[in-house]
Design a protein around this nucleic acid. Structure first.
Length: 492
RNA sequence: GGCGCUAUCGUCUAACGGUUAGGACGCGGCCCUCUCAAGGCUGAAAUACGGGUUCGAUUCCCGUUAGCGCUACCA
């Protein structure tokens, strides 16, 4: 078995209850990790973890033109960020060419595959003609009748050739773990390529060779692979190998019910990470997109997903990706997360924005208090730095709307000044006393309490919308509270 | 065009022949309240269509329609 272990990659072998189960995720590094890919990975991961099996990561990089190391790195990062740890790999398909080559040789020597020298242009024209006339087209087996000698001659003459699989007669049937029984008439399956004329293996050949070599028992992948499955089963049979279990996941659709793609906007896992989405929330949302544990519980941690996961409860129909619901899950996880952990994430959020050194509330306890005040109002990590700034930083913007609504009438300024003075003189700066003082003052001056509260809220937080005002005061402390009220009351 | 898969509220889904078709997101209303959230209560909202099978179909079968996928010397 080839190996290419990344330093730092999880690679421990688990004690397995059913050592037979081996699942894998096999992305091709032609782009970032797509949410669809992430869901495929997740279902494999959940299956392996829930059944004490092994989760293997394999990078299918045999398309040398489109694959890049950079993309491999991004995919691995996204996997790690989501918390999907793997037991073996990552293996790189491009480093396993010897195995693929030997597999082709074997098939060739057993006459289960044959060389084909048909000029690609001819095939292409014929295919296009068929399409124009709306006829089905499959390779016509011109080269199947070639004798060994003829083949050798052409090869010597330098005619480029590929290797095709000889599809046997009959019908290929399999029990899909998700879709149920699926059958294909072999007459509709063409003699597909195993090896390109440049000697590189094709997808079908390399997946099957690798899955056999890695003793994969469960192939869980997207429904777009359903029609590839009979070809691959035929290969297993030709190689005299046991056919693994297959499970085809429905596809994730955009709001227009087309397959989710960049056209719909954000599809990269990386995007959601930078948008302040929690990995647990994304995992939770993705798991429930197509799977239901039954019952009414929806908000679950990864451990609970693992515990309750059951492939037989996976839905067959395609599902539309709904960002609003993802955000709701995120808010739920934000609410339920242990406060210390959440504070750590928020701290990181400020760090990534280059703000951390200016955060006055950098003492863990103080920062935690701010997070506790804000969390029920935040849907993403971003919201903490977006409109919760005044809770962490001395410099913050006054929202123009807020100013207009509560600070446009200068009559409020002297009242605010008086309030600041009274707060300064207050024996005990508490929740009850600050509120009492404010309400008393409002009554004395004939100001509506709401107007004064609003003005002070804008002064303290820069916003007309914020957590409970007196809690905010306590969080900021007497000095900051007084200073901010005076600052706003003094402003023209 | 061929082949394959799918079909419950706008969206994600539950109901494995008998339910006032349940829950969640989103949307509306009410409560709570210093604003906004959160929370609680509540409202509108679905079995694509047509045939069977059955005492009885969301559920089983067939067809229609629609959607999606595949149809490469990509993966």
């Amino acid at each position: 078995m080839a190996n290419h272990d990344e330093p730092g990659a999880p690679n421990q072998t688990r004690a397995t209850a059913s050592p037979a189960l081996r699942a894998r995720f096999a992305p091709s590094p032609t782009g970032y990790l797509h949410v669809g890919g992430a869901r495929t990975a997740l279902f494999n991961w959940l299956l392996a973890r829930s059944r004490g099996g092994c989760f293997i990561l394999r990078i299918e990089d045999t398309d040398l033109q489109r694959s890049s190391e950079e993309m491999t790195r991004v995919i691995l990062d996204s996997m790690r960020w989501l918390g999907m740890d793997w037991d073996e790999g990552p293996f790189f398909q491009s480093q396993r060419l010897g195995l693929h080559r030997r597999t082709v040789e074997r098939l060739l020597s057993e006459a289960k595959a044959y060389p084909c020298f048909c000029p690609p242009q001819r095939l292409e024209e014929s295919r296009r003609a068929a399409e124009r006339e709306k006829r089905a087209w499959i390779y016509d087996r011109t080269c199947l009748g070639l004798t060994a000698e003829e083949a050798l001659q052409r090869r010597r003459a330098g005619v480029p050739g590929l290797v095709r699989f000889r599809v046997p007669e009959g019908e290929t049937v399999f029990q899909d773990l998700i879709q149920g029984e699926i059958r294909f008439d072999n007459r509709l399956i063409e003699d597909f390529a195993l090896q390109r004329s440049d000697g590189m293996p094709t997808y079908h050949l390399s997946v099957v060779s690798d899955d056999i070599d890695m003793r994969i028992s469960h192939v869980i992948r997207g429904a777009d692979h359903i029609s590839n499955t009979p070809k691959q089963i035929l290969l297993y049979e030709a190689l005299g190998q046991a056919v693994p279990e297959f499970g085809h996941l429905s596809l994730i659709l955009g709001p227009d019910r087309k397959r989710l793609s960049k056209r719909h906007g954000a599809t990269a896992v990386e995007h959601y990470r930078t948008q302040g989405i929690l990995p647990d929330a994304l995992i939770n949302y993705l798991a429930l997109l197509g799977w239901s544990p039954g019952g009414d519980r929806e908000v679950m941690a990864a451990a609970e997903l693992v515990e309750r996961f059951d492939l037989s409860r996976v839905n067959k129909a395609n599902a539309v990706f709904d960002v609003a619901k993802l955000e709701w899950f995120n808010a739920q996880h934000l609410q339920q997360m242990e406060i210390g952990k959440l504070t750590e994430r928020v701290r990181n959020e400020f760090f990534e924005n280059g703000l951390l050194d200016r955060v006055f509330a950098s003492e863990p306890a103080q920062m935690e208090a701010a997070v506790a005040l804000l969390r029920s109002r935040c849907k993403t990590l971003h919201d903490f730095s977006r409109w919760g700034r005044a809770f962490f930083l001395e410099e913050f913007e006054i929202d123009p709307e807020g100013r207009k609504k509560y600070l446009s009438d200068p009559a409020i300024f002297p009242v605010m000044q008086e309030l600041a003075g009274r707060y300064l003189a207050l024996a005990e700066f508490s929740l009850a006393s600050t509120e009492q003082v404010l309400r008393d003052l409002a009554a004395e001056r004939g100001v509506k309490p709401g107007a004064l509260i609003g003005a002070v809220r804008v002064a303290l937080t820069g916003n007309a919308v914020a957590p409970g005002l007196f809690e905010v005061m306590l969080h900021l402390g007497r000095e900051r509270t007084v200073a901010r009220i005076r600052r706003s009351a003094a402003a023209p």
